[in-house]
Design a protein around this nucleic acid. Sequence first.
DNA 1: TAGATGAGTTAGACACAGCTAAATCCGGTC
DNA 2: GACCGGATTTAGCTGTGTCTAACTCATCTA
Lengths: 234, 234
Amino acid sequence: MVDSLAKNSPLSTSREDYLADIYRIQAVGQSANTGEVASHLGVTPASTSAMFKRLAQEGLVNYKSYSGVSLTEEGERAASHIIRRHRVIERFLTDILGIDWERVDEFANRMEHAMPDEVLEGIERLLGDPDTCPHGYPIPSEDGAIALASGQPVESLVAGEFGVIRRVDESDAQLLRHLRERGLVPGTALRVVDANAIDGTRTLQVGEATLVIGQRIARALFVERLAGSDRQGA
Amino acid sequence: MVDSLAKNSPLSTSREDYLADIYRIQAVGQSANTGEVASHLGVTPASTSAMFKRLAQEGLVNYKSYSGVSLTEEGERAASHIIRRHRVIERFLTDILGIDWERVDEFANRMEHAMPDEVLEGIERLLGDPDTCPHGYPIPSEDGAIALASGQPVESLVAGEFGVIRRVDESDAQLLRHLRERGLVPGTALRVVDANAIDGTRTLQVGEATLVIGQRIARALFVERLAGSDRQGA
DNA sequence: TAGATGAGTTAGACACAGCTAAATCCGGTC
DNA sequence: GACCGGATTTAGCTGTGTCTAACTCATCTA
């Protein structure tokens, strides 16, 4: 409220980082508390607490001591703008420059704060207004509207079911590399050949190949389930 | 010297701005003194003086009180890297995104600090390793080598001479816009039809069009003089 | 219900990079 | 050789965002 008059002044890089992280946490239904945000951003809880207070004072988050924060309408607008920049940049880096998808998050984190709107618009035009980032997460539109993150974890499929990968967990570069090397990327169709109830491994048919994945990956791959289930092998 | 061990840590945004400005000043043979740098960067002389001291302490410039600075070898390496980023980004913005050339300097100033090397390389590949920025200034190679800024001012041509624009002064967006709107961009051929000794105006033949320019523009357009002079009109 | 525990906050400090105001230096003039 | 004016430097301060260390709160357990 204090400087609602100075609303047009750009947010600091730090503020943008905090808001984007709070947005992402909220998007998966978690509570944006001090420790969570601090560990994502690689700062101490003390710093996070201080920033929460600043953001609250500026009307960007609702903050009650010891209870975490939630984005205000204004905060959400700002955050979705940053997420949008981030995801469009990721697309640009993979689709136009051919950079591996496990590296683009880091690069986008550096570039997203310095990208003028006009440049972002140019890049979007170049890309043909993409709907998602390379990992399958939806890109908010300019007015902040955003599609639901699509898909359900492969973990929830039973043997015989078909699915198409729509999204993968993007929080770990190692994991992303692993998935890419195995062709487990959005758009890929797969069939769950077998789900081992004992150790949680699953056997997938992906094109010609058969692969066995553990629980970690089964939770990181989000698929759209396809109608035709096929139980003849069970 | 102090932290020559920490050489790999990235330079701060501010340091990059100062180094790049010193580089540009040196490139035109001027002396990089406090006032000059301060006015280019929009900071006070006091701030500049403080930064000169820091840069000197880090071995990036030679600094003697009251005598301005010059880049050390290490400082020049860092500066040319930034200039390179700046000019490649400008090319990208004009050639790929179609942004007007009078706006790209400002955008590149914001983006140049946040551009990872891998991304820059990707962009260069996309552009086909351009030699110059959109305004005609040479892009340093990765090892810091840089071509001479080409061309001589139209002011130095006499009536009847032919030239091809190779470079234009890029320091003023208004001027750049003006030049663009008249087609006075690198690659354009022109002939000096007349040079008025009294008021310094010149009449140019550019394609089908004839235009009259004043001294300001005659000094901002750098051309490569072409052999065949044509005095039949004089 | 009273601790214990761990998460969250406050207090106090630091680095960075800017500012203003005051002092100082340098080069040119008389 | 003294002096003047403008450029430069110094001194001291501010705001941002971080840190560590110490304290406080909320909650879970006994």
